[in-house]
């Protein structure tokens, strides 16, 4: 359901020239999958670290007839998701939804929806640090050269160190990937559980880093593979438990502490996915009645 938008703002807050500038950056990013493209990020009405990059990307691709979904750690009802959704309701007047399948634009912080995406959908990621090599090579001049020259030995050094120190690759989120056999990319702090969803995805994936002023993208049906070693292949997290609400065994589970005696339960991090399953009649150990 769309509300009337506040006429004090241009559609989706940004002026048209800014949107064009960002769209140019997005087109460039789609043309060179995984490559970080600088853009002239604008001052947004939320501080850095609160999704300004994602918001600017969403603002640039949003059309009046779009249906917007905003999630934060998989949930539609956390503070940030609510704030950003309200922001776009007010400045763009677009229809909003919590149902993944109904959305045409999905802005997300730190998760990819469990429901498989379809052609025509756009997934916008909020990215804090776009440079996957940053922690080992602090110089921007050097990392730019490394990407340009495909000089990625350092990336595997990080993984080597993990195995040497912990016996296995210890990175569990923001797990580096190689896009279209060329650029190494930080998928944003999504859990490595979500990495396989990025590959060969029918939707357009756009990444915005507001503080660092970088945009990158993965066009539909692009190969995205997680870095690993031949003898230490990439694996995703698995749980012994299933979702306490809907009984799902294949989704990313959040661990909730229920009391101060060590009580805990595991529930789907993707609230929409969990709700859809319960609508279909699936039940987990915690629920007793239908929704």
């Amino acid at each position: 359901m769309s509300e009337a938008r506040d006429p004090a703002y241009n559609f989706a807050y940004l002026d048209e020239q800014t949107k064009r500038m960002i769209r140019r950056a997005l087109l460039k990013a789609l043309a060179v999958p995984g490559c970080q493209i600088p853009f002239a990020g604008r001052e947004m009405p939320m501080p850095y670290g609160w999704g300004t990059g994602g918001v600017q990307v969403t603002a640039s691709v949003l059309k009046q007839d779009d249906v917007l979904k905003v999630i934060d750690q998989g949930a539609d009802d956390t503070t940030n998701a609510v704030s950003i959704r309200k922001f776009f309701q007010r400045t763009a007047g677009v229809a909003v939804t919590e149902t993944t399948a109904e959305a045409s634009v999905i802005q997300t912080r730190h998760r990819i929806p469990e429901t498989p995406l379809a052609e025509g959908q756009i997934l916008v990621y909020q990215v804090p640090i776009p440079e996957p090599l940053r922690f080992l090579e602090p110089r921007e001049t050097e990392t730019r050269k490394m990407h340009a020259l495909e000089d990625y030995g350092l990336m595997h050094v990080k993984l080597y160190e993990d195995i040497a120190r912990h016996g296995h690759i210890a990175t569990t989120y923001a797990y580096p990937v190689r896009v279209a056999d060329r650029y190494v990319m930080d998928p944003s702090p999504t859990p490595k559980f979500d990495n396989p969803k990025m590959s060969d995805c029918p939707a357009i994936q756009l990444f915005g880093a507001g503080r660092e002023k970088r945009i990158y993208a993965v066009p539909p049906y692009t190969k995205v593979e997680s870095l690993d070693f031949e003898d230490h292949p990439f694996t995703v997290q698995a749980w012994d438990e299933s979702c306490a609400f809907c009984g799902a065994q294949d989704s990313f589970l959040d661990e909730l502490v229920t009391d101060d005696q060590g009580g805990r339960m595991f529930v789907c991090s993707d609230t929409d996915y969990c709700n859809r399953r319960r609508e279909q009649g699936f039940r987990g150990s915690a629920t007793e009645d239908a929704a």
Partner: peptide, 19 residues
């Protein structure tokens, strides 16, 4: 970075992928 990683990096830089 560890000594082993220092010596291993040139190999990884030219495509070695077996830990």
């Amino acid at each position: 970075v560890s000594a082993g990683a220092n010596v291993g990096e040139p190999l990884m830089a030219v495509g070695a992928r077996h830990y």
